[in-house]
């Protein structure tokens, strides 16, 4: 009797899991193979290495030292890393400040942080274009103070401002959620044992908050590397790797788009594995 009930249970289990398993294979796993498939075929669906080779060899001018797409990849990575570091620098103390507040203040501050997140990011980014453009609000304000004008729009600075603005909450929230669970007694113990403020931060708070930092870094770095809207609106003619994919998509060059996407995917996997590896090493140490 008991055995019978168990086997019926497992049948229900399988039925309950079946739709999702099927969905996940069809719409998560298989599409990724389509990126590889398109990356390694031409428009007639014949095998070719041309698309992939193109990413590593294409130059607009023959005398350029770096191939074009390698340069764009480098630029995307550079801007994304800088933005992520700025987000960490700005967000970490802020997350700490929220975590130290009373429960009521905590929930108010978290709600306030989330409001911009819930606004469409296209509109948020567009607002920065209005602020930063040459005859925009920033230069208007500077003129009132008898300063400026400064040229920001179209520079790397503008793109970094956009990235930091759009993704700062994604850095604050995971760090906060780890810090909120941190045991106050540990901090007190460290102080009692003779740690100064910086020592407590370096030896207790930072290592404990590391999981939050890692997920915050992931949540800022990945959308920053792959963005195309921020660079379109704030970067002027500057292109990031997301722009290249988007441009090939709008020109119906699906094979070219897939090749860049394929390499981006592998690159990000390597970066994330390295990040995770360092985090594991640290937590062991």
């Amino acid at each position: 009797m008991k055995k019978n009930a168990n086997s019926r249970g497992s049948l229900i289990q399988r039925l309950v899991l079946a739709p999702y398993s099927l969905w996940a294979v069809l719409f998560i796993v298989v599409p990724l193979f389509f990126i590889a498939f398109y990356a390694f075929t031409d428009s007639q669906m014949h095998f070719t290495l041309h698309n992939i080779r193109n990413v590593f060899t294409y130059r607009i001018n023959q005398d350029e030292t770096l191939p074009y797409y390698v340069m764009v990849f480098g630029r995307s990575l550079k801007l994304a890393v800088i933005s992520t570091l700025i987000c960490l620098l700005l967000g970490y103390p802020f997350a700490y400040r929220i975590a130290r507040a009373t429960p009521r203040t905590q929930s108010i501050l978290i709600t306030i942080i989330m409001i911009p997140m819930w606004m469409n990011f296209l509109i948020r980014t567009y607002a920065w274009m209005v602020i930063l453009q040459d005859k925009g609000i920033l230069n208007g304000g500077l003129a009132l103070l008898g300063l400026g004008p400064i040229h920001v729009i179209g520079t790397e600075t503008a793109v970094i401002i956009g990235m930091v603005y759009d993704y700062l909450p994604y850095m604050i929230l995971p760090i906060y959620s780890v810090m909120a669970k941190m045991d106050n007694k540990l901090l007190e113990a460290a102080r009692d044992l003779g740690c100064n403020g910086f020592g407590v931060l370096r030896r207790v708070i930072w290592p404990l908050s590391l999981p939050g930092v890692i997920s915050g870094v992931n949540m800022v770095l990945i959308p920053s590397v792959s963005t195309f809207y921020i660079s379109q609106k704030l970067g002027g003619k500057m292109k990031l790797i997301g722009d290249e994919i988007e441009e090939k998509y709008t020109n119906f060059d699906f094979n070219g788009a897939a090749a860049i996407a394929f390499i981006m995917m592998i690159l990000l996997l390597v970066v994330m594995a390295l990040l995770q590896h360092r985090a594991n090493k640290r937590s062991v140490a």
Binding site: P31, L32, F34, I35, N218, I222, P223, V225, S226, F228, G242, I245, E246, Y249, A257, A258, A261, M264, M265, L268, M272
Partner: peptide, 10 residues
């Protein structure tokens, strides 16, 4: 984990 652009393109 995947960037949205990869999910979308795929």
């Amino acid at each position: 984990i995947n960037p949205d652009i990869i999910t979308g393109i795929s």
